[in-house]
């Protein structure tokens, strides 16, 4: 667990603090996304966690230990670090790049080789083909996957990711995001992720932290922030399609009318969604089938009925009836 306590940083030559008294807790196994416009301090905040930037004030602890007491290189070897520019070493092959931290930690050679091959495999890269290449021979998407593999090499419990997918094209970006989510299901790393893209933040984050000019504006789950934006700034950040985004974050079961009895259950119509599916999926299916209601199931068992009116009313209610 990462904990930041009243952390501040003002860069030399600047009057405005880059990070201003931020208190934050990142839970074990969570993806915490720091989101905000450029210059909001999100990258500075991230770089304080591996001590690439030293705070002027406040305290940062990892698993209860203050990082200020730790030797920076030793600390950094236990924290994966991925940046937008990837920063692969151009004079080393892909395999040698991934082997970097294991090498620093003096792993035996065979263990490192096995790990590198496994990581390339995990990132959907062919170890035989890509391992011997040099960074300039890779596409942007491949390079970024190697960047992630390199950060994961020594299996660090924590990952810091600074706009890792910002420089690749939208199609590749979606693929990389999906891959990260898939990996995270098994890895359960504690991840701090910086982005300026609110859609990426909502998609990846278990917990969002909205920053502006070094201050924390709001923090919470994506749904918390979507449904209760703190102010106009957050509202604008969320975009014009906040209602649709909410439906994407809301499970079908939360808006359904549960079946009162077995008779109602038996009368359920043929169109179905799963209880944990987002309402957006249910809506899509209802539109396709030209129907106003759809049966919500847990596995094969129908548990309730989701009605168009309930969805409409929900969006209307949380958006405060705004036009």
């Amino acid at each position: 667990m990462i904990q930041l306590e009243q952390v501040s940083k003002t860069f030399r030559g600047s009057r405005q603090p880059a990070v201003d008294r931020i208190t934050l807790r990142v839970k074990q196994g969570d993806i915490c996304v720091l989101v905000g416009p450029s210059g909001c301090g999100k990258t500075t905040l991230l770089r304080m966690i591996n001590r690439l930037v030293e705070p002027d004030d406040g305290m940062i602890t990892v698993d209860g230990r203050s990082i200020a007491q730790m030797d920076p290189p030793t600390l950094r070897r236990t924290i994966g670090y991925v940046i937008q520019q990837v920063g692969l070493l151009p004079h080393r092959t892909i395999a040698q790049n991934i082997a970097l931290v294991p090498e620093l930690l003096k792993w035996p050679r065979e263990k490192t080789a096995r790990r590198v091959a496994a990581l390339l495999e995990m990132m959907d890269l062919d170890p035989g083909e890509v391992g011997h290449k040099y960074p300039h021979q890779l596409s942007g998407g491949q390079a970024q996957r190697v960047g992630v593999a390199r950060a994961l090499a020594a299996d660090p419990p924590i990952m810091l990711m600074d706009e890792p997918f910002a420089a690749v094209d939208p199609i590749v970006r979606v693929r990389l995001q999906d891959q990260l989510l898939r990996l995270q299901q098994t890895m359960q790393k504690t991840i701090c992720f910086v982005t300026h893209d609110i859609n990426e933040a909502i998609k990846l984050g278990d917990h969002l932290v909205v920053l502006k000019a070094g201050r924390m504006v709001q923090s919470g789950t994506p749904l918390d922030i979507l449904t209760q934006p703190e102010n106009d700034f957050v509202l604008r950040l969320l975009g014009d399609d906040r209602g649709v985004k909410i439906l994407d974050q809301t499970r079908a079961e939360t808006l359904m009318d549960p079946f009162a009895d077995a008779a109602a259950q038996a009368a359920a119509n043929g169109h179905r969604v799963q209880a944990i599916d987002p309402v957006k999926i249910a809506l899509e299916r209802m539109m396709l089938m030209n129907t106003d209601e759809i049966t919500v199931c847990e596995g094969a068992r129908p548990v309730g009925l989701l009605r168009w009116n309930a969805i409409k009313a929900h969006v209307h209610r949380i958006s405060g009836g705004a036009s």
Binding site: N50, L52, P72, P73, T74, L75, R76, R77, T78, Y81, I83, Q85, V86, G87, L88, L89, P90, L100, V101, L104, G147, R150, A151, L160
Partner: peptide
């Protein structure tokens, strides 16, 4: 390239 040095530093190089 500064970003390569930054990446190296971030990975824990002395």
């Amino acid at each position: 390239d500064g970003t390569v040095v930054d990446a190296g530093k971030g990975m824990g190089m002395t």
